[in-house]
Nucleic acid binder design. Structure first.
Lengths: 125, 125
DNA sequence: GATGATACCTTGTATCGCCAGGTATTATAC
DNA sequence: GTATAATACCTGGCGATACAAGGTATCATC
């Protein structure tokens, strides 16, 4: 398995929730949005995405209803539940903290917020 | 399993390689360095770290030799091989690209400096 | 009528973080 | 003396999940 796969494991859930929050509602569209909005870096395979959506639905973070495309193809539309919105916020926070911690170790200085003790840390090695 | 666990999967390898490159040589020390340098955010359990070191050694990214502490306890010291250094660079690059892509989707602009006004953007949903 | 795009799904495999347990030595209490 | 903690290593089994590979079905295009 590629490293991309391992990286995706922690990021897929917040990404999906975010894309749905932005108004992409069904699987195929969500996959395309992830690919497009990531500049082609993130490519969620169908065997990854659909099970993930089902898990989120099972956990009541998403609610689903069947619909149809203008051409008559069936689509399964998802939307965030209240719990889903809450989880989205929590995961975004967790992602931020986690990547900040890793970036500190990797010596990658770009951070999200105001950061006070970067300089102090830099001096201690 | 916590989300932290899933996040760690993609980051553990580059983090370990980086910490060893910085001069931490044996497991116990590496674990403490990861905890300390991440500000306590990253906590690699022994059941995570030791197998990871063994995998890296098996893949010839690390070379190991047994040693002793001043008090007489045995220690297994690791160092990067040439392939390990190369992998470290590659993984750092991959980490950067990946997190940049995710941040773009999550609306976390990858910024330099203490400026963060997401608030304006947040209001537009 | 073949191909490709759209749109969904599932099974099986491999991987890996973690839990829980183990072994052993040394230092520090009490 | 003898717990307890800290140091320092290890492993087996479990649960979770990304992916490959396969499937079904509709519609547009050539």
């Amino acid at each position: 398995m590629s490293v991309q796969s391992d990286l995706l494991r922690g990021a897929l859930e917040p990404v999906i929730l975010e894309v749905i929050a932005r108004g992409k509602t069904y699987g195929y569209e969500i996959a395309q949005a992830i690919a497009a909005e990531s500049g082609g870096t993130l490519l969620t395979q169908e065997g990854t995405l659909y099970p993930a959506l089902h898990r989120l639905e099972k956990r009541k973070l998403l609610k689903a209803r069947w619909g149809e495309s203008p051409e008559g193809r069936r689509r399964k539309h998802y939307q965030l539940t209240a719990a889903g919105r809450k989880q989205r916020d929590a995961l975004r926070e967790e992602w931020e903290e986690f990547t900040t911690a890793v970036n500190r170790i990797l010596g990658l200085a770009h951070m999200f917020g105001p950061n006070k003790d970067q300089a102090a840390w830099e001096g201690t090695t």
